[in-house]
Every structure is written in structure tokens, then in C-alpha cells.
Design a binder for these strands. Structure first.
Lengths: 244, 244
DNA sequence: GATAGCGCTTGATATAGGTCAAACTTTACC
DNA sequence: GGTAAAGTTTGACCTATATCAAGCGCTATC
């Protein structure tokens, strides 16, 4: 059942949001900020498990994640599914819908979350007035393309342990970029979801995490992860791959 | 060695190009076409094996493929590489570079090819004046994101034979969209390149093609492919996946 | 604060696809 | 147009990861 998502007044404006350097406003001048704030004034909250959008729903807005964690997943008619990403604060999602004016994946909150809604028509309009915003939107879309290519490399060419090492290091780096500890964090997703994202089964995720722990690279206890030896974790997947 | 790529005068304008419905001009009105033609007037030709751009080279333009075939590939520092796509006439490439103002993959001609160069700065400028062009550019970028998600599904969740069936059907459909036979075409890429794209080894590609042939689904002789039974080829990968 | 259900771990076994190898075919180049 | 190199096929064997199974431990809810 879809719950109601109350529309909140703008609790926090872009200019005073501590994500502004990671989010849509990056590169926007102070003078232009007011227009962007007007655009992004609509906030929505989601409980864990809620859908931000579903495959097939019409394109209305892009969404900037203010707090929380989402996953996106594509579903194939034959029942296959693939997690295409885990998104955190400051990241923009929904761009999949521009192509056909309808979303092509689901976005599900992995924890209680808040997003800023960016009506796409108005975003394009504003882009025509503000070249720096236009360019930044293009950069965000391009960044998604580049990220996707990285995942293809991971799925197509890496072994399970390399994929998981890359995944942990990527999370670490993204937490760090938001001012959180790069070495200790909580996974918001299940082993199943990690495995689906990385193209492996949940048992393999579990085994490989245990293996990393035995090797002294990490500590895992359920969702709590501590990276003990980022250097060797990186080397782990760098060197073994180089040996191919 | 990078060869010289002679700059040709505009041999064919967008308005008289038979790819206009598949390419950047899709959705552009007749009145707007002249400006687009001016933008896209620079053509470049490439011999097989030539690089259109390389990872690290600065963003200058996007490129519309007029004739020929390209592959794009990402290279990882540790030596891994991944083919991220095979691009044909009417498709736009180079969007990976917008994110960081530098290309993140190589684009290599798989046969003698011709591209229309679209200087990106001018493209953005023109996008600010022509909302339909702006929207179309966004659609093209979004389409790439959606395609990438499909490849993730393929790499992360399908078996080798399903991936290859999906690949053949995708090529078939793209040839059909350009007025070529959907049932008989030439592969422009090697088994190695197909395998790299699909996350499998060249031997597996070869074996699986032979297997499809034995099953009466296709005819293969080197690069010449004939699809004999598209329905069952589709069913092949649909049903077996559904049985999971 | 008890309990049901979901998530996680670990073991045993199976298998898809990888690896290595050899022979054959096509293509490119001198 | 002959020859070397690159691409392809097929076979035999191997291994990374999947599958199946059992038991444990959170954590969420009443």
C-alpha cells in the first residue's frame, strides 16, 4: 500500500543546507540561489520501504535526497530484478524517467528519508536562464552514466571479492565526502540487496565478508562495518585483478 | 599512432540526412533545423581502429555517428577493461565526458565511419534557445542511463545464453530501426569484444553461438548472423530466466 | 518482554562458465 | 598471391560461485 507523503514547507533552504556542495546547488552563484530554492522548496518524507517512484509512473520531478538512503531497481518482465544503485544524501535520482517521460525503475527508501522535489519542467526552464545550472544538471546526468560504466566493469570483469571490496570502498568514500567516518558505518541494505547489486548471491556476500574479516581487512557484525585496512582492501582488488 | 582526421565540409545537412528521426534532430521543428545544421556541420571520418576520443582527453564535442560502427570501453588502472557499448548510425556518443570535462572511456571505430561533431558548448547554448532541443538532449542522456541499467540487469542477473540472446535481439532491433534487415546482419566486433561486453569469455561466446545454431535459432558463419527464429530466441532467454 | 519471522552464517555439494590447448579459418600485409 | 597474424571453434579439465540445507540471532511487534 502506498502511504501518503505529506508535503512539508521548506524547512531548510538550499543556501543553508549542508549538502549544497554535493547536491544540485554545487557551482551555482549566490545570486542564483534564490531561484533554485524556490524550485526545490517542496520536501517529502518517506518511511522505510516506501516507494519514491515506481517503474511506469510518469516523469514529474527529479529528487534530491536530503536525508536517508534509497535503492533503485529495474524489474524485467520475466521476473528478474537488478538493483542499479544505492543513493544517499546529496544525490539526485529520477533521471531514468526523462527518456520516455515515465520511470523505468523503482526507487525504494531503505530507511526513513527526506527528499527535495525538483519539478523537471521548471528545472529545465530555469536551466535555460542559468547556464551554470544547465551545465550542472548535465554534469549530474553524465556522472550517472560514468558511474554506470563503472558498475558494468565491476559486473563484467571483476571477481566476487573484488566487487565487494570495491563496493565497501565506494561506500566509505561517499560517507567521507559527507563528513561521516570513512572507516565505520552502517549498511542500510541487506546481504540480499548487496548481492543483487553486485551480481552475486547473498551467501557469497556473507562468505566474502567473513573472509575479509578473517584477513583482518574489516570488521563486520551484521550491518555494522568497520574498515580496518583500506589500503590492503584496495590492493586486494587492485592486485588480484592485475594478475589476470 | 593517431592518424589525421580530415575535416570535411558539410556533405549532408541534418534536414536531408536519412537518420534525422533517430538522431539529434528528432523532435526539432523545420524552423529550428537550420541552427542545428550549422552546429553539426563538421564531419570527421575514421578508419577501422581509429580512436574518436580517448579516456582522459578533454570534452570538446558530442558526436553523432553518421555511418559506421564504434565501441566504447572503460579501462581500469589495474588492467581490466570493459566494453560499455557498441554504437551505430544515429547514436550520440561522448556524454561520459561532461561530468569531469574529460572523457572517461575510449571510443574506437570498428569499421570505417563518419561522425558529425557537435561542439558541446554551442550545443548547450542552442539548448537554451530551443527548448525542444534541450529536452531532446536530456532524453538522449537519459536513454543512455536506461540502457546502462539494462546492461547491469544483463550482467548481474542473466546467464550466458540469455545475455547473448538479448545481445543478438538488440542488434536485430537496432538494425531494423535503421531500415536494415532485422534477420541478417554482419557483426562488426570480434567474439572477444562481444564476450567482454557481455561479461563472458570468447570461447563461451563461440560455444553459445554454436549451441543456438544447433537449436535452429540462428545461422552463424564468422561475422555473418542470420536470425532464424527470433520468437524462440526471445523465449529462450525469457522463459529460462522466468524459471529461476 | 515474549515470540515470530526475517536476515545472516556456515557447510556440503553441484554446475556454469573459465582456462588451457590444439587445430582450423579468415584477414591483412608484404 | 603467399604468408603471418589474428580470429574462431571445439575439446578436456578445473574452479569460482551457485544451490541446497540447517541452525542461529536480531529486531520488530503486540
Amino acid at each position: 500500500m502506498q502511504k501518503l507523503h505529506p508535503l512539508l514547507p521548506a524547512a531548510t533552504a538550499c543556501s543553508s543546507c549542508n549538502l549544497r556542495e554535493n547536491c544540485l546547488p554545487a557551482g551555482i552563484t549566490v545570486g542564483e540561489m534564490a531561484q533554485l530554492e524556490d524550485l526545490a522548496s517542496m520536501k517529502r518524507t518517506f518511511r522505510r520501504g516506501d516507494y519514491l517512484y515506481r517503474s511506469g509512473s510518469p516523469l514529474k520531478s527529479l529528487y534530491a535526497i536530503r536525508t536517508g538512503f534509497f535503492k533503485t531497481q529495474v524489474l524485467h518482465e520475466n521476473g528478474l530484478e537488478q538493483v542499479t544503485g544505492f543513493q544517499m544524501a546529496g544525490e539526485i535520482i529520477g533521471m531514468d524517467a526523462i527518456s520516455t517521460d515515465a520511470h523505468t525503475c523503482n526507487a525504494v527508501a531503505l530507511e526513513d528519508s527526506e527528499v527535495c522535489e525538483l519539478p523537471f519542467g521548471r528545472l529545465e526552464e530555469l536551466g535555460r536562464e542559468l547556464p551554470s545550472l544547465q551545465r550542472h544538471l548535465h554534469k549530474i546526468m553524465s556522472r550517472e552514466i560514468v558511474r554506470d560504466h563503472g558498475i558494468m566493469l565491476l559486473l563484467g570483469s571483476m571477481r566476487a571479492e573484488e566487487r565487494l571490496a570495491a563496493f565497501l570502498l565506494n561506500l566509505s568514500q561517499r560517507f567521507a565526502a559527507r563528513g561521516y567516518s570513512p572507516s565505520a558505518f552502517h549498511l542500510r541494505m541487506t546481504r540480499q540487496e548487496i548481492g543483487n547489486y553486485l551480481g552475486m548471491k547473498l551467501e557469497t556476500v556473507s562468505r566474502t565478508l567473513s573472509q575479509f574479516q578473517e584477513a583482518g581487512l574489516i570488521n563486520v557484525r551484521n550491518k555494522a562495518v568497520e574498515i580496518l585496512d583500506a589500503k590492503n582492501l584496495r590492493a586486494f582488488f587492485g592486485y588480484s585483478a592485475a594478475a589476470l
